[in-house]
Amino acid sequence: MDKNYIRKEILKTREDIEVVLKKEYDSIIFKRLINSDTYKNANKIFTYISFGSEVDTKEFIKYALSDNKEIYVPKTDKGKREMVAMKINSLDNMGVDKWGILEPKTVEEDKIGEEFDLIIMPGVAFDKFGNRIGYGGGYYDKYISRKNIKCPKIALAYDLQIIDKIQCEEHDIKADGIISNKEFIKM
């Protein structure tokens, strides 16, 4: 199936999750993540800040910061279609980009991270082989490839986002695991 068609259908379905059910699923995914050895063994974590109907990462970020983990989040340059990972100490003092996504307001050279123990990847759809469909900008694929990052890459997803097979391209970066409200799929 066409990636754009899959992206459109999954986003529509994800947006239709009832608020109470979404909170329940987010809680299950959060607990699976923080109880995983992948999280426990990580000190430097690069994660997206959730937006819209995505699996909530804000509670995870707060928890990880209180657990003395170093947390990095994306700061994008939409003109160059690139991003950097900026170290944060809280979700305060963030700006909102043109799509309404929270991100650090400025790029501070001394806070840019490039080596991580864990990356939490966003995405719209995933298969059980680690293939993913993102939002179409290729930011994570470009970033991980450019920096040659080898740490575990985990996706957080609702079970409805996991489909049978995604046709991937050579430049697509795969997830090493997917934590959903049903299971932790390890590749």
Rank of each mutant, 00 (worst) to 15 (best):
N89S: 12
I45W: 02
L11V: 13
S90G: 11
E114T: 15
D110A: 15
K111P: 12
I29D: 01
Y63K: 08
I101G: 01
P122R: 05
V73G: 03
I112E: 14
N35T: 06
S66I: 12
W99N: 02
I29P: 00
I28R: 03
T57S: 05
I71R: 09
K128H: 10
G100N: 10
I101V: 10
F51K: 05
N89F: 11
L11Y: 06
N35K: 09
G52Q: 09
K98I: 15
E54R: 00
N89L: 12
K40C: 04
D92H: 07
D26Q: 03
I88P: 04
D56Y: 00
A85R: 04
E103M: 13
G130A: 02
R132T: 00
N89I: 14
K75I: 14
A85N: 13
K12H: 07
P74I: 12
D16N: 15
S66L: 10
V55C: 04
A42K: 10
L65G: 08
G123Q: 08
N68A: 13
G52W: 07
K58S: 03
I119K: 00
R32S: 09
V84A: 01
E24T: 09
E54I: 00
Y39P: 12
N93K: 11
D92P: 00
G95W: 01
M94D: 01
E18D: 15
M86D: 09
P74W: 09
I10W: 02
T47N: 04
D26Y: 04
I112G: 09
A125L: 05
V19K: 14
N93Q: 02
P122S: 13
I10P: 06
D97S: 04
K62N: 15
K23Q: 07
S36C: 01
L11F: 11
K12N: 14
I10V: 12
E15W: 04
L102T: 00
F46S: 03
Y25R: 13
T47V: 15
R32M: 13
G137W: 08
I112V: 15
N41Y: 04
K69A: 11
N43H: 14
E114I: 14
I88S: 02
G137K: 07
S27I: 06
I34N: 06
S90Q: 09
I28W: 03
I71K: 09
I71L: 07
S90V: 15
G136Q: 07
D127Q: 05
S27H: 12
I71D: 06
A85P: 00
N131A: 03
I45F: 12
D92Y: 11
L102R: 03
E18Q: 13
K44R: 13
V20R: 07
T106H: 11
I133L: 08
Y63I: 02
M86K: 11
K87S: 12
K23M: 08
L21W: 08
F126L: 01
Y135N: 08
E109V: 15
F46Y: 11
S50D: 11
G134H: 08
S66F: 07
G95L: 05
F51Y: 14
S27W: 06
F116N: 02
L21Y: 14
D117I: 11
Y48W: 06
F126K: 00
I88L: 10
F116H: 03
S36R: 01
F51I: 10
E115N: 14
S90W: 05
G134Y: 07
V55N: 04
V84K: 04
N35F: 04
I49P: 06
D67P: 12
E114W: 10
E108R: 13
L65M: 09
K22Y: 06
G130H: 01
